[in-house]
Amino acid sequence: MRDVVEQLQRLGMSGYEAKAYVTLVGAGQPLNGYEVAKRSGVPRSTVYETLGKLVAKGAAYELREADDATDYLPLPPRSLLERMRREFDDSIEALESSLPAIVAPPEAHLIHSLKDAGALLARAEDVIAGARADLFLSVWPEEMKRLSPLVKRAVERGVETSLMHFGPAENPVGHLYEHRFSSPEEVSEGLGCRLLVVAADRRETLVGGFTGDTAWGVYTEDPAVVTMAVEYIRNDIALQIIADRVGHETMREFWADDPRLKRLRAGHGHPAALMRAAGLPAHPRVPPPGADRPGTR
């Protein structure tokens, strides 16, 4: 019952209204105000006001008795949910046209810090759900489990989706490429984290990292950062396609022997350390380029 009450509150009912409605639904027969108060825990001093609000919303009906007493019946749950859905959809449709009209152009493109896994994944879901033209993702299986349903919906509504997935994907969606060169384990060791990058419509991007139970990241609509995020994913996908074409062993030899590539790979674990330093309130010492993270070889 507590969960139902909480969900009804999220859809606009007050706590007392939700408790009274659930009580009426569970009774199976008309109830008067006294019975509703007794069964629901709504104070007797406010129960008739609460029932009146339910009646005004169409969520309950009054039954007038011959002795002028009043009983109450609930609108059936299926009908209530359909009505709420229609009202919600109507409000969203109205706001889609009216709300953007009052938005002032930003004076600067801000960067929002995200300092825990819940906030990071919730913001990633927002970016994916808002995509209309194209979507770029670089993601690991751990995060893909939560994001996959929204990615699938994006593909279904015609969003051009390009996805770099670190390791085998249980349910491939869109244009998905498995990161096999280098191996996911080598990438994780080099970065020091599982990097998540999401970019939608060349308009907004989220970049974050996960290490164990810790997560940190940023969200921005800055065009320069968005472009860099998109190009990062595009280039990573291109590298996988080239490796498949020329052969992974040939690529591995070239990757290991070319001194220019060795120089670019310097800074083991440095990217994650920089993000961690930027994402936490304290300012931990960032290891210099080339220094290993503790516990790695």
Rank of each mutant, 00 (worst) to 15 (best):
P289C: 06
F88Y: 07
V197F: 11
H165G: 07
L95T: 03
A229G: 00
P284M: 06
S45I: 01
R265K: 12
P168N: 09
E17I: 12
G192M: 09
P294D: 08
E87Y: 02
K152G: 02
D89S: 10
P271N: 05
H270F: 15
A60K: 10
A27K: 03
D201R: 04
I128Q: 11
H175F: 07
G28M: 03
P76D: 12
A154L: 10
S97T: 10
V187G: 03
G267D: 09
L80P: 12
K57H: 03
P141Y: 00
N32V: 05
Y177C: 00
E82C: 04
L80Q: 12
D244Y: 03
H109R: 10
V55G: 07
E142P: 01
L147F: 02
E87G: 07
S97P: 08
L176W: 03
L206Y: 02
R83D: 10
E170C: 02
P141A: 01
G28F: 14
I241L: 15
K145V: 13
N32E: 13
R153W: 00
R123S: 04
P106F: 00
T250F: 13
W216I: 05
A59I: 08
Y21F: 13
S91Y: 01
L95P: 00
G33S: 13
H165T: 03
L24C: 12
T250Y: 15
D3R: 12
V197H: 03
S162K: 14
A229P: 00
S183A: 13
P281R: 02
A104L: 04
L110W: 01
A277W: 12
F88Q: 12
F181V: 07
P287K: 06
V36H: 06
T220I: 00
R86T: 13
G118R: 15
R297V: 00
P184T: 03
R203K: 08
M1C: 09
V198M: 05
G212L: 01
H268G: 00
E62D: 02
N171R: 13
T205A: 15
D244Q: 08
A215Q: 02
I237V: 14
A119K: 04
T211Y: 05
P284G: 07
L51N: 10
A277C: 11
E87K: 13
G269Y: 09
P106K: 02
P43Y: 10
H270C: 04
P76C: 04
D67L: 05
G267P: 02
R83I: 02
L239D: 10
W255C: 03
P288W: 01
V230I: 09
L239T: 11
L239G: 04
P30R: 11
G267R: 10
P74H: 09
G41T: 03
G41K: 03
H283N: 07
T220F: 00
D236L: 10
M228Y: 01
K145C: 05
A131F: 02
I242W: 14
E170H: 09
R39T: 01
E185S: 08
A154H: 05
A224G: 04
F166E: 04
A282M: 11
M275D: 02
A199F: 04
T50G: 01
H268W: 08
G26Y: 15
R203E: 14
G208V: 06
D90T: 04
L73C: 14
P77N: 05
I233E: 08
E186G: 09
A277T: 07
R252L: 14
A129S: 14
L239H: 13
Y21C: 09
T161F: 00
E221I: 03
H109Y: 15
R86M: 07
E82S: 14
